[in-house]
Design a protein around this nucleic acid. Structure first.
Length: 161
DNA sequence: GCCAACGTTGGC
DNA sequence: GCCAACGTTGGC
């Protein structure tokens, strides 16, 4: 297990797709599709690379929290759900020539020994600059190495060396 | 369920 | 290019 080069936080509503759901995938991987925000799209298309670390965050629940760690296993490629009229994420502007939206693949790595809640993050001085606390709606966002290590520590996980 | 924040759309 | 209207997200 190598140390990730860069770190990210991916949000998901567990009623839609949870960390457990990722764990239960036959190969532990999932296409991170359906992201429909340009800033997040740019990260998925251009910045997020295999080997990068992902904090898996559960949103829109009574106690929002980072619950586990995943790993990027495939870099950005066109999000086919935008082309599928049957998909909730269908976008008539997207085409094969101009995919508009991108996704990456992530793989389950490990749960935190205990979830790190949003309330806890808000109280921790080291995390006061986290994008999560400033731009709560951005569903894919960067995390600094210091923030990553702080959250793993709070979550009872030894830093991946 | 409410509401603030914020991204997108479209008229001008 | 501005900005009002509108839609969505997400914490509470």
């Amino acid at each position: 297990m190598t140390r990730p080069r860069r770190y990210w936080l991916f949000k998901s509503e567990p009623s839609c797709f949870s960390f457990e759901d990722l764990k239960n995938r036959p190969d532990g991987t999932e296409h991170w599709d359906g992201v429909r925000n340009y800033q997040a799209r740019n990260l998925l298309r251009d910045e997020i690379k295999p080997g990068d670390g992902v904090l898996f965050y559960h949103s829109s629940i009574p106690e929002p929290a980072v619950v586990g760690i995943a790993r990027v296993v495939r870099e950005g490629y066109p999000d086919g759900s935008a082309l599928d009229p049957a998909s909730d994420h269908f976008d008539p502007r997207a085409s094969r020539e101009n995919p508009v939206w991108y996704m990456v693949d992530v793989r389950y790595e490990r749960p935190l020994a205990r979830p790190v809640t949003l309330a806890e993050m808000k109280m921790h001085p080291e995390l006061s600059e986290m994008l999560l606390l400033k731009r709560s709606r951005l569903s894919v966002q960067s995390v600094t190495r210091e923030e990553w290590e702080c959250i793993l520590r709070l979550g009872g996980v030894e830093t991946i060396a």
